[in-house]
Computed example of a mutant assay.
Amino acid sequence: MKTVILALSYAFCWGVGLTLTKIALSEITATTLLIIQLIASVTFLATVCYFKDRQLPFTWSHLKQGFAGIFEPALAYMVGTFGVKMTTASNATLIGSSEVIFTILLAAVFLGEKLTRVKLLLAGISFIGVSLLMLKDAQGADRASLVGDLLVLLGTVFAVFYVLLSKKQIATANPLQLTASQQMVGLLVTVSCFSVLSILNSSYEVSAAGISLQFWLLAVISGIMQYALAFLLYLIALQNVPVSQAAFYVALIPIFGVASAILALGEQPSFTQWVGGVLIVASSYLANKLKTV
């Protein structure tokens, strides 16, 4: 029951957080939004750490421990945020659920977890689902949405590497301190990358000028939900279950993400995209029923 509650909690935070990000992008640039969200996440986690342990988890040893933050939130969300801006929130949420399948395959390679024919079959079904999600954008006149889909997919691959690295650490690490350290490393890497990019292209500059109060609040709330809470709950779950098993629960994210996108943004996925989403969610659900080793 505890695992189910954790799964529902981090799925809710990631799914709804993604939709809030999509709304915030209507007024805030992708680079600025990501920096605000990460600062909000790090501030929230640091505050909790201080009140809990009376210390901040930002010493050099803590930061070295948080190196997985380079992959996520840094690389995964730098790429993913630009992808979300160019595609729909529902597409981004559903494509992100393919993380389950990538995790199955890479966990077999790097962690030696068992890879069966059934898992490969489910991976194939999920791949077809992702392809159907992108089919409409690939055939349409607006190629930007297809590029957005591909960026979200690349961000998902980075996220899998984060999970594989974190699984090796979480057995002996404190989830709260590890999350805070990873988020801090992610913030430092993101700021560094955007600083370099802004020199090459001014569109990557970070500027909070002109952001209304309601969008400030939206950015902060989405940062705490999508980064601080979601990652913390996920690492807690990762303490008790194998990587593959923890990743399978990612299939729940589209339920919250698409539902919130429909309610908040009025998005209506096409029939083909619904079929693709159902294939991804169904394959992940069936994979969740498999016994892992």
Rank of each mutant, 00 (worst) to 15 (best):
T3M: 05
I5P: 01
S9W: 01
Y10Q: 00
Y10I: 03
F12Y: 03
L20H: 02
L25M: 06
L25E: 02
S26L: 11
E27Q: 12
T31R: 06
T31Y: 04
T32P: 00
L33C: 06
L34F: 06
Q37R: 13
V42M: 01
V42A: 05
L45C: 03
Q55K: 15
P57I: 08
F58A: 08
W60R: 13
F67C: 08
A68V: 10
L75S: 08
L75T: 02
A76L: 11
M78F: 10
V84E: 04
M86E: 15
T88A: 10
T88C: 06
I95S: 07
G96C: 06
G96R: 02
S97G: 11
A108V: 10
I125H: 11
V130S: 02
L135N: 09
D137C: 01
Q139E: 11
G140W: 02
D142E: 14
L146F: 07
L151R: 00
L151I: 00
V152P: 12
T156V: 10
Y162C: 03
L178C: 06
Q183R: 06
Q183M: 15
V185H: 08
S192A: 11
F194W: 08
F194R: 02
L200H: 10
L200E: 04
N201H: 13
G210I: 07
I211G: 01
W216R: 08
W216M: 07
V220M: 09
V220N: 03
G223M: 06
Q226I: 12
F231S: 09
F231Y: 14
Y234Q: 15
L235G: 07
A237G: 11
A237L: 15
V243Y: 04
I253L: 15
F256N: 06
G257W: 01
V258I: 14
A259I: 08
A259E: 09
S260F: 00
L265G: 07
Q273F: 00
Q273E: 14
G277A: 05
T292P: 09
